[in-house]
Design a protein around this nucleic acid. Structure first.
Lengths: 122, 122, 122, 122
DNA sequence: GTGGTCTAGACCACC
DNA sequence: GTGGTCTAGACCACA
């Protein structure tokens, strides 16, 4: 995993964790990597991972058990969906619509790009 | 005009200027407000507007004439289009597609929201 | 019994033991559950119960007899009272008074809540 | 200001800030000391103050303005009241009632201590 | 071993 | 000058 420069690392790690949950790679009630483990595997400072975990705990996506570790909460999947959806609706979509208006792009064009993307990835 | 706190102010002002140009409110070869004027009307530190103008000058959207002021360049309209388009293609679209995949949103849903938006704005 | 996450588990278990003594469920000179037994029934690591017992032994509330187990001391009841009372006077009360001052709550209000509590618990 | 050892420093600083607001020493819409300033005057690391401010920002008690500083929010007073009140109701009161029950203390006794406290402080 | 807090010092973007 | 992020390293309580 390598980090972009525009978004803070701890939030990129949060995105990463959320993605694991959405993809069902990390499932409800199970333990996730310890702060130190994840820090080593991502080659960042433990404090940075700690910050990510605190952020996600605040969002009720993970929970801590003293001296044991962090766990995926019971309704983490739904919480992640809610979080990402509200972000998308309040930030992503307005930006999209504004760009479409200013640049005179219509849906068909975007659809075409969407299909092309699939080819590119293969 | 009020500013969001997530994006830097000077870039929000840059967006504002670009929008004036795209909407043909500020047209090619004409003088735009001085740094001090715009700063006052936006209730912002002049340094911030200065930074906006430097940024836009670097993008060849505006140009300075010593002792006179800033002017919209001859091909500003096209430059803005290029700038916004490349931003959209490199940042906006990938983000959009990623959100759609993770949240299982399809084009029809977005289309519906697009139409609903028009109502909301009225 | 389920644990809150804000207070350390071993102290929550200590509270539990003290409560048994105050309620005369565990009486003087009798044997209390072994570390292992209590750990199993509370679904907790034996080390944690061990820490609780050491803590209470230090407070002269329980005592160990080598190879036999832990026993409630002769004056455990009084020791618990003393412990809780000093905690209450040095921590609980000052906090209470400070909250009352800052939040402008008076005794009548608290008294009302006290009476309401009885209803809630039924 | 000197810190107790039982509660984390950044939360004690948060309490301090809340107290300033409740006492109307820091009022709505005004700037509060910068992270560095407060860090120096409290003799702690700037990161610690930063943590306090982030915590309070999350609680909508203070807000940040880029490159300028932190400000008391419009309804900070009410937010602090809400925060402290919910803490008191969910933590302080149950503890109080439990102590009263276990130690067989009644309201008159507490009232007496409350009045004595006033003498002590003079 | 785990999380959690704190310090020291650095660097960045921004106003 | 301001906030914000990150690193490095230390220490603590806890399970």
């Amino acid at each position: 995993m390598d980090f972009q420069n525009k978004k803070s690392i701890y939030l990129q790690i949060a995105d990463f964790v959320c993605e694991q949950i959405l993809l069902k790679k990390w499932v409800e009630k199970t333990k996730i990597p310890s702060v130190r483990e994840l820090a080593i595997s991502l080659e960042v400072n433990p404090n940075t991972v700690m910050r990510t975990y605190s952020f996600l705990e605040d969002k009720k996506i993970i929970a801590t058990q003293r001296g044991i570790g962090y766990f995926v909460t019971d309704d983490a999947y739904q919480q992640v969906i809610n979080l990402k959806k509200s972000e998308f609706l309040s930030v992503g979509l307005p930006q999209l619509f504004r760009s479409m208006d200013l640049l005179h792009i219509d849906f068909n064009h975007i659809k075409k790009l969407y299909n092309e993307r699939i080819k590119h990835e293969n």
